[in-house]
Design a protein around this nucleic acid. Sequence first.
DNA 1: TATTGTTATACTCTATAACTATA
DNA 2: TATAGTTATAGAGTATAACAATA
Lengths: 161, 161
Amino acid sequence: MGSAHGSPAGRSTPAGEAGELAELLSRSARILNRGSVAGLSPLGLTYGQARLLRLLAGAARAPRMAELAARLDVVPRAATTMVDGAQQAGLVRRLPDPGDRRSVLVELTSQGRRLLGRIAEARRATAETVFGPLSPAQRADLLDILRIICGPGSSSAQRGD
Amino acid sequence: MGSAHGSPAGRSTPAGEAGELAELLSRSARILNRGSVAGLSPLGLTYGQARLLRLLAGAARAPRMAELAARLDVVPRAATTMVDGAQQAGLVRRLPDPGDRRSVLVELTSQGRRLLGRIAEARRATAETVFGPLSPAQRADLLDILRIICGPGSSSAQRGD
DNA sequence: TATTGTTATACTCTATAACTATA
DNA sequence: TATAGTTATAGAGTATAACAATA
């Protein structure tokens, strides 16, 4: 296994701590995802679709598919699936891009817009369960830390709630 | 709950903060997972299989399938798939439980044991990328916070590294 | 030639239910 | 009857490649 085990200052991320951080991070995300799915399935939405709608709600203009994929941090193929599902449910609409006929713009329908409040409520309830045990200071710390991990441009991409 | 701290609405988790925490947590996990897959695929392992092997490496006795599933925080069906894959690769072995003929025990093969070092190295490299930008204090904070989110019994389930 | 979004394909993880064999 | 693990089935996410239309 790792040779340098008890090395206090040799590496910036000690092997044991790094492994536990990774394990706990993926485990936390699994807990969050499980709660999100439970809260969203009564609305007929997947987690990805809810992220999509939330992004569209905060967007100034109807974004293109590629822009959507980038801001959702998924490959373009995954964005197609999300939009397909939301469109079938009547929540979003595909529009031709007047400036580039290869591109497709996506916007909320009024039906999709009406669902936003319930989506936000479901997310709030899930977040309350997951993050509720933390102190306000810990939540602030976690926010800072996750922003660093995710890098610039990832936070406040979806600001409204 | 809602001791109104500074929040206008008097909720313990302000909606905007909660939403951003959720978004950033799932995004961080996606980054971590992507790195893990990239680091593990040269070894012919999935992320789940690597978690399985790591758990077995730290286990005192060969655990049963149900115990495996519980400690990996997956449904029993998922544990079957993970063990299937690792067994086909010759890394783990299924044994009959002498005490209960319904049960199946899982243990590392010597081949699986030989792979542990490279798994740990791959995880360390991934964790270095993901958690490296954090200060030691931030890593310690994150560890505390994630332990709270995951609840008791989730940390140090895999202690060795 | 390069880019946009799609179809096609494949694999992992997740989840539920039904089945077998034990207990 | 209940439990342990499996098979069966399905859906969601992820990723790559190939393709048509357009730039």
